[in-house]
Simulated scan of single mutants.
Amino acid sequence: MRKIVLMAGVSLDGFIEGPDRDIGWHQVDEELHQHMNDVLRSMGGFLSGRVTHELMADYWPTADADPANAGAVAEFAEIWRSKPKYVYSRTLRSAEWNTTVVRDVVPEEVAALKAAPGGDLTLSGADLAASFLRQDLVDAFRIYVHPVRVGRGRPLFPILDHDPVVLRHTDTHTFGNGVVLLRYERT
């Protein structure tokens, strides 16, 4: 069965974006980008909220057409285009680029996605991740901690009203730019 994998870049103090949705502090260099490509290439699809999906759809469909975007950036454009995408939105009516619009996070529908053939599904977008976490639908975490303190913004993890969820550490990796990958799975 496929897993729902929350992948997120966070500041050392736990924010996924600073004020005004700023993510300019993310330290994605060629090494980290290539690593992300290698991970995402094996995934079965992308689960994202509307805001994240629209940001991606504004850039990645043609990013590799720009000669300045060689290497890992151009490679990711092809990965993004080719993968199935599920965008959770109550306002978006349709979407291009191999995208299915889903209205709500329904546990039975998520279970059906997990039961389908293919690789794991990567989850992104602050609001969508919060919804999946509230409903205890996340199976694994790939948290990329960037060596910066943002001070304020949007935290990765919402406050939840349930018992602690115990996780098992599966890997830690430090990249040359100081970003640290922490991997955890449900026990």
Rank of each mutant, 00 (worst) to 15 (best):
F141S: 00
E17R: 10
M36W: 13
M7I: 10
V39L: 14
A8Q: 14
E17D: 11
E185R: 15
L128E: 04
R81H: 06
A72G: 12
Y144H: 15
R142T: 00
N98D: 06
P164E: 12
G178D: 08
E78A: 15
I79R: 02
E109H: 14
D104L: 01
T100L: 04
K83D: 01
D136G: 04
H33F: 10
R103E: 15
P164K: 12
H53A: 09
T187C: 05
Q34G: 09
K114N: 08
H26A: 05
M36C: 07
L128G: 08
L113W: 15
M56Q: 14
E96S: 13
V150S: 10
A77P: 08
G24W: 10
S42V: 01
K83R: 12
E30H: 04
H35M: 04
N37H: 08
V106K: 10
E108P: 05
M43P: 01
R50F: 01
R142N: 14
R152G: 13
D127C: 00
V73Y: 03
R90G: 06
G125M: 02
K83E: 02
A57Y: 00
L156Q: 06
V5S: 02
V28L: 14
G44V: 09
Q34M: 07
Y59F: 15
V145L: 06
M1I: 02
T174C: 11
E78G: 13
E78S: 13
A77F: 01
L40F: 12
A68Y: 00
D13W: 05
H33W: 06
R154T: 15
G178T: 00
H35N: 04
A111V: 03
M1A: 10
E78K: 15
P147K: 09
L113E: 12
V102N: 07
T187G: 11
F157M: 11
D120T: 08
E75P: 00
E185Q: 15
P158F: 05
I16H: 08
S42P: 00
Q135E: 13
D22P: 06
D29W: 06
V73K: 14
G151S: 01
Q27S: 14
H169D: 10
L40R: 11
V150G: 09
T174N: 04
R93A: 13
K3W: 03
L6K: 00
G71C: 10
T187A: 13
T100G: 00
L121V: 09
L121M: 11
G24N: 12
A115G: 13
D139A: 06
W80H: 05
A111I: 03
P158M: 05
D22L: 05
V51S: 07
L128V: 13
D22T: 04
L156R: 07
Y184A: 13
P84G: 10
L92P: 02
F132E: 09
D120C: 09
V138W: 03
K85N: 03
G125A: 02
G24Q: 11
A57S: 13
T172L: 10
F141E: 07
G151V: 00
L167F: 11
M7G: 13
A130H: 05
V5F: 01
V5A: 03
A74I: 02
R183V: 03
L182T: 11
K85V: 04
L55K: 09
L121F: 11
R41K: 12
R21D: 14
S89W: 06
L167A: 11
I159L: 07
H35T: 04
P155I: 07
H173C: 02
G45M: 08
V179P: 01
D171V: 01
V51T: 14
E30Y: 00
L92D: 00
P84Y: 11
E96M: 04
K83C: 01
S48C: 14
